[in-house]
Design a binder for these strands. Structure first.
Lengths: 142, 142
DNA sequence: TCATAGGCTTACGTTAACGTCAAACTGCTT
DNA sequence: AAGCAGTTTGACGTTAACGTAAGCCTATGA
């Protein structure tokens, strides 16, 4: 991807910031994942980079989606879940035939997320309590 | 497990509430999981039911652990993660050789959970915004 | 007494999400 | 010209978390 890197450097010189095009290795490095993973996400339809010849070229939009993908993963969602989730973002700009259906889907997902939020807060509270106990014992008995 | 069920019924008659012993199917039904899953958790050391002959008998403690396991799963943690996590709870009552080490582990996990909390809140905010957009469009254009 | 309903173990099957080669094709750099 | 770095498409390997039988034991109700 040296051609691309040259292009990038050029763009950077002119616009000083915000590269518009990315090679697969750029994204892999930036987000600390493998190129294999990125290609895999593409086969699953989560990313749709363009091609220059054979080579994948990613735009800002793909990068943005990748960020959402990784966040979804940190939240423990499957790629299939994340796919649906991305569709919600897409539907935002496209004219979805049924907004009502979209809204329902969003509500479903929000409900899920709120359950998760509850679980999380409970867990944090409990662990914090255990931490205090351990802390106290450390201080008194040692 | 009819012997156990009989036992349970008996106990219930006397104490009127809070069964102390559970058959594998009881827990499976209560939490909507398979008996296979429960046995699997046992092989992974997450549960340690007693045995009456060959048959597993679960106490309240096991039930409590199962609740933690399922919560952990909802939060997207692996069984291995959950195992460590359970150990934190255990260490609470046992005398851990190094409280310091325990505290460090708890802090690690808390950091993780807080990242997750951030991710979650961001996601909820974004989805809520998208929801509003869809909602408005539904109202105006239809 | 026989069937039926669980329970137990053992073992192979399955899905998700990549990891890990292999083999071949660029485009530079030297 | 030769080599290296980076990319591509297969294709097989791997780990986690169970699902799904198969075969066997046992208590209980008809």
């Amino acid at each position: 991807m040296n051609a691309l890197k040259a292009k990038e450097r050029e763009v950077n010189k002119v616009e000083v910031e915000k590269p518009e095009l990315f090679a697969i290795a750029d994204l892999a490095k930036e987000f600390g994942i493998s190129t294999r993973a990125i290609r895999f996400y593409e086969t699953k339809g989560l990313l749709q980079p363009e091609r220059v010849g054979n080579t994948r070229v990613f735009r800002r939009r793909d990068r943005a989606r990748l960020i959402l993908i990784l966040r979804g993963k940190r939240l423990g969602f499957s790629l299939r879940d994340i796919q649906e989730y991305l569709a919600l973002y897409d539907a935002d700009s496209s004219q979805t035939a049924q907004h009502t259906l979209l809204i329902e889907k969003i509500d479903e997902r929000l409900a899920l997320l709120r359950t998760q939020l509850d679980d999380l807060q409970t867990t944090i509270t409990e662990l914090t309590e255990i931490r205090q106990l351990a802390d106290e014992r450390l201080r008194t008995s040692g």
